[in-house]
Amino acid sequence: MASSQPTAATQSAPAPRSRVGERRKFLSAPAIVFLIAVTQVPFAMTIWYSFTNWNLLRPASTGFLGWDRMWRNFSRILSNPDFWTILWNTLFLTGSVVVLSFVFGMMFALLLNRPFPGRAIARTMLISPFLVMPVAAAIVWKFLLLDPSNGLSAWVFRSVLGIQSVYLVEVAPMLSIIGIVSWQWIPFVMLILLAGLQSLPEEIVEAAQLDGAGPLRMFVNITLPHLRRFIEIALLLEVIFVLSIFGQIFVVTSGGPGIRTTNLPYQIFLEAFSSFNIGRASAYGIFAIILANIAMILFLQVVRRHRLEGTS
């Protein structure tokens, strides 16, 4: 983009235009500096802290670990068996939420794409979980819905199913978290897919119907290929955000019982603000960045391969 523009400009009016171009570059410099300051400086400091042994209660411990021991925070984490459990928790949570919200988001989007009375109200109500703050949603789920003696689940267990009430957060902590996070993310996927469905040209639908395509055929051969771009963007954004889920875990389970619902962000929080071990917390942060990048690259590759298959 930046290289092609000046050449195009030289053809019509050489001297003044190029100066304008340079001036434009100069004008964008403050924005770039600002961007570097707010994104790259904290990142660079995280890298630096991960090579220190800084304990907040020990102000003198902010120095570099030394060349021979500089990787100690990382090697300690890798040799800690809990780390692999936490990593698995993070991946399992993200994967489950992405799959669930995709399936249900697609279902709701398809339903809402059909005209029916009260559609606008239904759409607004279906979107609202996404607009609730994560911590507020978690509190509602923990105390109003899942509480074993006063919650809605207690009523369902006792009056509807006729069995003794159980505390789902205790019996199935991870599934409870997955349920709460999915509940919030289904509307997001639904919203984007609905926008995609509504941009599907009417003529193509009619043409396919004239050719005698049934509903399933329509969905697989017309709707899904059309939605591919929308699915990509929805799931990509979702992976980024769900990898760093914190509020729901903090409120509902505090990472427990044991470390069964501890994910990487929660572990970073514990290291930094409960153990005050800034060095170790920063090293965990680096692992979280690596994980997010791996997940993103894998994800993009899968999507790209699909697109190639789709065109061939």
Partner: peptide, 17 residues
């Protein structure tokens, strides 16, 4: 000692198991 909070939290976890 400053390190006790971190050690105590982890040992508490293991002891609970």
């Amino acid at each position: 000692i400053p390190e006790f909070q971190g050690i105590g939290a982890q040992v508490g976890q293991i002891v609970a198991e």
